[in-house]
Each structure stands twice: as structure tokens, then as C-alpha cells.
Design a protein around this nucleic acid. Structure first.
Lengths: 220, 220
DNA sequence: TCACCCATGTGAAAATTTTAACATACGCCG
DNA sequence: CGGCGTATGTTAAAATTTTCACATGGGTGA
């Protein structure tokens, strides 16, 4: 088990660590060696004390008076986030969202290898998206087992999502990123996160309707 | 200003209202007239007391001993979320994510009308995606002004996102949904939410690496 | 070597959010 | 028409998360 000082910390810390990671990558790319929590926070609209506390849950990564060594912190965050290894992923659904995910090259860069895309549309099967083959949905069980796939991205219509999720879990998948706009019910040892695209627009619509409410936690 | 009982409530309430809205739509479609907070919570993995509290910030929508009238609550939520009107939206970037957004029919259903897609790739300009024209990026300023566009979806590479956001805001856009993996700096009266696709996979990777940590707030 | 500057790491306080518990009100049924 | 079962709306407590404030320790330069 990786480095960890405390056994309890906010759920939101993990999400922020991802943001720190990306901001640090950017700094590194620009040849910046050292950064203070103040400077990093300015870049991300996050308070410096928040950053220091988040990092403090996992270790002492900074040098007092100096700040954080960008490359070193990147290495540590990579380790903490589980990005120091490769993850085998499948996409279910070769529609527009599935295709967009297959074309999203940042995934590969982070160690998420899209092994295959599954669909049951005869016209799509046999083709490729961004070099990844589209295979028949009926073969998904064997494929997941044989290739020891751990993660799946669900990009099918809402009505099909639960059945797809069940099948994936039965085959051995233990983490799911769900784009279908529906609440999937799963065993609690399966990790599932949803990305809901309309929800975000709805939140914007709300905040525009009530202009006195300030938008929060933007990180963006 | 729409109905509101209290002037302060959790930021997360708005997001949950969207989930309630969608679950209620599903119930309505299936001919169910009435639902209790307990039943709705079971569908969404949210505690019934949370639902009652969320709704209580905005009004008294239920009947004691009976639960909530599905159609009535839908109508109220629609109003609260600002979905009782049409929103004019543009997409910037006709890449895979932009295209997926343009093809995402749920947007139209919710009143988000995609008026145009902007790109500066000559090969794409003049074409259509799902009936929406792709226009030259250079025309975006005039278009936004003439069509009174209020919302924009940014689906361009990270390096271009800030400049695009600035231009949009200058033209009059006041709400942005940002898919570029970068923190955009904006005036505080502009609403901006980000959807970060790698962040979600990274969170999954983290939770798979530390199997003792349960995943939270799934709603899915 | 020592004094000074600076930014971290942290403990405690403040703020926010969730959960529990229950009094209240509605409708049904006898 | 009155009692009973039920599920709301709300108040208070618990839990969580953020922010503040500052003691601590590393580096630098005289």
C-alpha cells in the first residue's frame, strides 16, 4: 500500500490531486522546477492552505521556505493516484461518446490503454476507431476475461446501461466510468463514477437563472 | 426570481436536483404518479432525508403520508433548474468531443439549442454535424452577438482554451462548459464548469489501488 | 556560523453538509 | 367523524471539510 500518513481525508482531495498533477505537468513542460502552494493555487483557483493540507495527508513533499520540487511531486502524485502502472480498459458503445473517448489521446498518456470497443451494430463491427478495433458485444465476456480487463467505459443509451454494467462486472471488471444518464446499481466492491453531461449544463442554467449565486469550486 | 425558501443551501444540492429530475422523468414515463423520498432515494442511492432536505430549500412539494406527485415535482424542478426556457448554445471545436456534444440529443430535449459549431479547420467549415452548421471561428464574435448566445461549450485543445474563453466572454457569453483539461481564468460573473474526463479515470485508478477506500456519492 | 527570510506542515477553529429523529399533517377506513 | 398508518418538513446533532494562524525548519548571504 502506497504512502499515506492519515487514514481519513476528504473525498474531494483525490479529485484535487488530479488537478495538481495536471498543473504540475504543465509547469514541468515549461521548464519550471519549483512551485509554492501559493503559486499552484493561483493557477487553479484553490487556496494554498487547501493544497498544503491535501498533500499533507500523503506525505511531506515540500521544503520549508522553498516550495515543492515539481518533478518530485509529480512522481509522488503519480504513485498516489495509481498512474505508475498500466490499466486495461474497454469501451462499450461505439456511438459518438464512445468514439470521442477512443479518440481521447490523454487516456493513453496516463496509462489507460483502450483494448477494444464493443458494439452490436453490424455496420460498425470490424472497423477501427483511432486504431482500436470494434468487436461484437456478444464477445465481451471472453475478451474481458482473457485480457484481464479491469476498467470499462459505458457509453450506451440509458436503457441498456444496467445490463451492460452487470455483464461487465460478471466478467471481472471492477471499475466503471458511466456516461449513460442513469443510476446504475452495482455491488459495493465495484467502483463506478458517472459523468453526466446534461447535469452540468443544467447546473449552469440554474446559476444563470439565479445570478446572485456565485459558482463554486471551479478549478477551471 | 423563482421560489426559494432559504437563502443558503449546499452547493451539491443543485447537482442532486438534476438527478432527481431525471429519475422523476423516468418514473413519469413508466406511468408512476407518486413517489416517496424513500423510493426515489433507493433508485439513486441517496438517503431519503437528503432528498427531503434538498427539496425543502425550495418549497413544500410533498404531501405528508403520501409522498410526492411526480408530474408536479417535475414541473417545479424544471422551473427551479431554469429548464422552463430555451438556452442558445454554441460549441467551439468540431473535434470528437465537440461532435459528440452536437450529437447529444438530450441537450435539445432539455431546452439547450445548439445554434452553431465553430472551428478553424477549413475542411470542416461548411459541413454540418447533426444538422448544426460548422462555421469559421473568426465569425464567432458576430454570431454570438447577433444570436444572443448565452452559453458555450469549449471543446478545443488545452492550449487554446483560455483564448477561446476570453473571446466568448468578450462577445457576451456568460456561461461556459469547458472540456479542455486546463483551468480557465475568468471574471467572476461568468459561470464556468469543467468536465474533466481523465480526472474521472484517475479517481477510479486511485480507488482501485486502495481497495479499502469505498467510493462515495455515486448516484449511479 | 548566525540571523533572517520564506513557505511548509499542522492543530485548532470555523464553516459547511449530512444524518438522524420526530412532531406534524394528510388521507383512508371503519 | 375519529383514530391509525404513513411519509413529509424541520430542528438539532453529528460528521465532514475548509480555512486560519503560526510554530517549525530549510536555505541563503554576510
Amino acid at each position: 500500500m502506497a504512502r499515506r500518513k492519515k487514514y481519513k481525508f476528504p473525498k474531494t482531495t483525490i479529485e484535487r490531486l488530479s488537478y495538481y498533477f495536471r498543473a504540475l505537468e504543465d509547469l514541468s513542460k515549461r521548464g519550471i522546477d519549483t512551485v509554492s502552494s501559493e503559486a499552484l493555487g493561483g493557477k487553479l483557483n484553490i487556496k494554498s492552505s487547501q493544497i498544503r493540507k491535501d498533500l499533507s495527508y500523503f506525505g511531506d513533499f515540500g521544503k520549508r521556505g522553498m516550495g515543492y520540487d515539481v518533478k518530485y511531486l509529480l512522481k509522488e502524485l503519480k504513485y498516489i493516484l495509481g498512474l505508475d502502472r498500466e490499466w486495461a480498459v474497454v469501451i462499450v458503445g461505439a456511438g459518438h461518446i464512445g468514439a470521442a473517448m477512443a479518440n481521447y489521446d490523454s487516456f493513453e498518456k496516463r496509462g489507460f490503454n483502450i483494448a477494444a470497443i464493443f458494439d452490436n451494430d453490424e455496420k460498425k463491427i470490424g472497423k477501427e476507431i483511432n486504431g482500436t478495433p470494434i468487436l461484437p458485444y456478444d464477445n465481451i465476456d471472453d475478451f474481458v476475461k482473457q485480457n484481464k480487463i479491469e476498467m470499462a467505459i459505458i457509453a450506451v443509451p440509458a436503457a441498456a446501461a444496467q445490463a451492460v454494467a452487470d455483464k461487465l462486472v460478471e466478467s471481472g471488471v471492477t471499475a466503471i466510468l458511466n456516461f449513460a444518464p442513469v443510476a446504475v446499481q452495482l455491488d459495493e466492491n465495484v467502483r463506478c463514477l458517472s459523468v453526466d453531461l446534461t447535469t452540468k449544463l443544467e447546473a449552469l442554467a440554474y446559476y444563470m437563472s439565479y445570478s446572485q449565486d456565485k459558482l463554486w469550486k471551479i478549478y477551471s
